Computed example of a mutant assay.
Amino acid sequence: MYTRLNHAQPYALSLFRIVVGLLFACHGAASLFGLFGMHALSAGAWPGWYAGAIQLVGGGLVLIGLGTRTAALVASGSMAYAYFNVHQPDGLFPMQNGGEAAAIFCWTFLLIVFTGPGALSVDRLLTSRGGSGSEDERRAHRTPVAA
């Protein structure tokens, strides 16, 4: 049973990355364009408009799996900034300060930095077709071998 799960892992990581990227991009679209019942922020308003831009672009890149690790690192950092500068002054714990989403996105994107994009990504397509990329990047895209 575990062997089948191990073979599915790169695909599960891809699905996880796609869903997280989509949700993050939706937050950015809501902030920038007033979608999903939100009010659009004024262009250039600090820090909300810039956070929305990072969410839209970073979420889109993570969604398609292009520059995944870099985009996820920037997204994670932006959520750490949001948590400590916007939410944490209102209370120590996320349940007290309304920062659950920021904390979860921060740690989720940090996980994606280390796990990579999974099997279904533009990064993998570019690495496998062009033969470019480091050995570490190629190794990260291989299906794990069952123990």
Rank of each mutant, 00 (worst) to 15 (best):
Q88P: 11
L41A: 11
V86C: 09
H39M: 14
L22N: 10
I64H: 11
F84I: 15
V57H: 04
S78R: 00
L41N: 05
A72D: 06
S14C: 12
F33S: 04
V74P: 03
G59E: 04
W49N: 04
L23W: 02
M79H: 08
F16C: 08
N85L: 07
F84E: 11
A25E: 12
V74I: 15
T70V: 15
A40S: 01
G21Y: 13
L73Q: 00
G59H: 09
R69G: 14
A82H: 05
L41W: 11
A71F: 01
V62Q: 03
A53S: 04
G65A: 11
A80F: 15
L61P: 04
V20C: 13
G48F: 03
H27L: 01
A71H: 00
A40N: 02
V86G: 07
L15I: 15
A43E: 05
F16Q: 05
A45C: 00
G77H: 05
G59P: 13
G67H: 10
R69H: 12
L41H: 08
S31I: 07
L32N: 10
G59V: 00
F36Y: 15
G44C: 10
A71Y: 00
A75T: 04
G59N: 07
Y83H: 10
W46C: 12
I54Y: 05
G37F: 03
G58H: 06
H39E: 15
M79F: 11
G37Y: 03
